[in-house]
Design a protein around this nucleic acid. Sequence first.
DNA 1: TTCATAGTGAGAAAGAATTCTCATTATCAT
DNA 2: ATGATAATGAGAATTCTTTCTCACTATGAA
Lengths: 141, 141
Amino acid sequence: MAPTASVAPVRDTRQRRAIRLAFEEAERPLSTEQLHAVASRESRGLGLATVYRSIKSLVDEGWLEVIDIPGHGAFYERAGKEHHHHFACENCSEVTDLDGCSSEVRVRLPRGYRARGHDVTIFGTCSRCAEKRRPPTRRGR
Amino acid sequence: MAPTASVAPVRDTRQRRAIRLAFEEAERPLSTEQLHAVASRESRGLGLATVYRSIKSLVDEGWLEVIDIPGHGAFYERAGKEHHHHFACENCSEVTDLDGCSSEVRVRLPRGYRARGHDVTIFGTCSRCAEKRRPPTRRGR
DNA sequence: TTCATAGTGAGAAAGAATTCTCATTATCAT
DNA sequence: ATGATAATGAGAATTCTTTCTCACTATGAA
């Protein structure tokens, strides 16, 4: 049996610093696209492949967490935050962290089912979009 | 301006009957793959293109509703059900409807944000999978 | 029954998201 | 400073899902 996990050597590159910085400064989850845009400002010419590679290793080493936003794909955020939920703007697709988990998700499960966790996403319009446009009509998909 | 919406003529074919039947008999949301498998039993040789075409028209005419299960893609179920949430088995990917919406999703939103709805997905192990395997280790993705 | 045409199946094609390849560059232990 | 090699960027390639094309079939109004 192989020794528990060969921690791949990781060099502290400009690109990876930019990527970690992006998450540290962002006060919200980022999609790969958003991350690429933000981190590119810090590290010009940042390649998309590097973004994916870095995300993967950061997730593996437990520094990042993946969250799936229904209808908007994968987003990433610093791991270890307190349990919370997300708000997704149907208009601009920005995802925001919401405080706490007030929702006492006390759902009755069928016999034999066992829950391990839950995902809650509130969707609607963020303040920025609400200002511009009046109530959106249909759900963005 | 064109007359409000030319309701495309819809013929009552064996394939579409099989697809509607699949949803009527299924007591849970189905993915395209699952639908294809189930409806194929009723209508042998059912093509995947027809599955997609039918789903699209059923969604358009409001007979079906799309639900996104984080990490498991799109599922479909009869529209008009009472507000409820879903359980997704991390092991077999089966999605189940849960009764009511006990979760008083009373989350404090940031200033200016307005909610239009919420998605709640409980994930864990369904009874069938719980019987076989003991507590799963990692979250299925 | 007839027949215009909506619907179908099979596979090609299109999209998108992510991964891979590989020549070049940058990191960092020595 | 040197050098072995991890990391990068660009674009090709993959994978997965959904849509399109087209020859053929089946529906249903007449």
